[in-house]
Design a protein around this nucleic acid. Structure first.
Ligand code: MN
Ligand code: MN
Ligand code: ZN
Ligand code: ZN
Lengths: 145, 145
DNA sequence: TCTTAGATTGTAATATTTATAAATAGTGTA
DNA sequence: TACACTATTTATAAATATTACAATCTAAGA
């Protein structure tokens, strides 16, 4: 299953005229298999044994390329560094304010809100972002002690 | 009207045991009167004629204090610096992807989404954030040329 | 007025991300 | 397969935003 995703991703790069390098292959593979929301530095560290000479700029450059092609979404929060999510199905995120855990969360897209915003503001609306914040069950348990 | 908001804000600081300094007074006043979503540096620059010796650290420190007390909300986007919004009524934001303009936007809070997320993930949900992205009418017009 | 804990200031440090230029390598073509 | 062309990588420096720190100052209660 993840092999299929990787193959489709590589094909979509090829279709856009983006060269497939070993670094790109490895970053995509890591994003697909990790099933998480890693930072650029997470990816850099995870691949440094395989690519001891890879530059961190390469990770950033390729994540931008992947974002532009539509393969990954960039999740930006206030605090620290951006996180990257391999695009599969549309979903939202629930984030623990205590430990930082990010949980995927399926919910129908809020089309009404977009339409309403377009009408009220005159914007040409393209998309929205939403995140839900709280404490995960582990952290909530610890706090109650 | 803004005098009332300023007075209430100062009272709420006093109630929390936060000292009222000229710098804090000025930052709050600016946030309330600007009716916009300034960055820390916007505030710093706007007040430098009045406080030639004020440190940018003071602006950051106080914005954090105000956030902790609940007087301001910090809006963090990917690209540049954080923006700050004096808390009045609950509202969302519509953001122009081209020029960066931020427009306030009233919409009933998405309580259902929060409840659903809590049930599905087991989180103790506290709040959510949502922004709508698109192009404002001016930018959309320019692009069509 | 005096005292003192908290606030401000000036500066250095940290961290993330981007820019740059030289070296390298992927891919289409012959 | 070998070549040529150009995209990509690498290494490093730079830009930017934010925080840490220590010395100085001051708001506010006694
Ligand atoms: Mn996700
Ligand atoms: Mn606002
Ligand atoms: Zn947690
Ligand atoms: Zn615009």
């Amino acid at each position: 299953m993840s092999e299929v995703q990787l193959k489709e991703a590589l094909d979509s790069l090829k279709d856009t005229g983006v060269r497939i390098t070993p670094q790109r292959h490895a970053i995509l593979e890591y994003l697909i298999n990790s099933m998480s929301h890693p930072t650029a530095d997470d990816i850099y560290k995870a691949l440094e044994s395989k690519f001891p000479n890879m530059s961190v700029a390469t990770v950033y450059n390729n994540l931008r390329v992947f974002r532009e092609v539509g393969l990954v979404k960039e999740l930006t929060y206030g605090d620290s560094s951006a996180r990257f999510d391999f695009v599969t199905t549309n979903h939202y995120h629930v984030i623990c304010q205590t430990c930082g855990k990010i949980v995927d969360f399926d919910y129908p897209a809020l089309d009404e809100v977009e339409h309403f915003a377009a009408q009220v503001t005159g914007f040409n609306v393209s998309h929205h972002r939403m995140e839900i914040y709280g404490d995960c069950s582990e952290c909530a348990k610890k706090e109650s002690h």
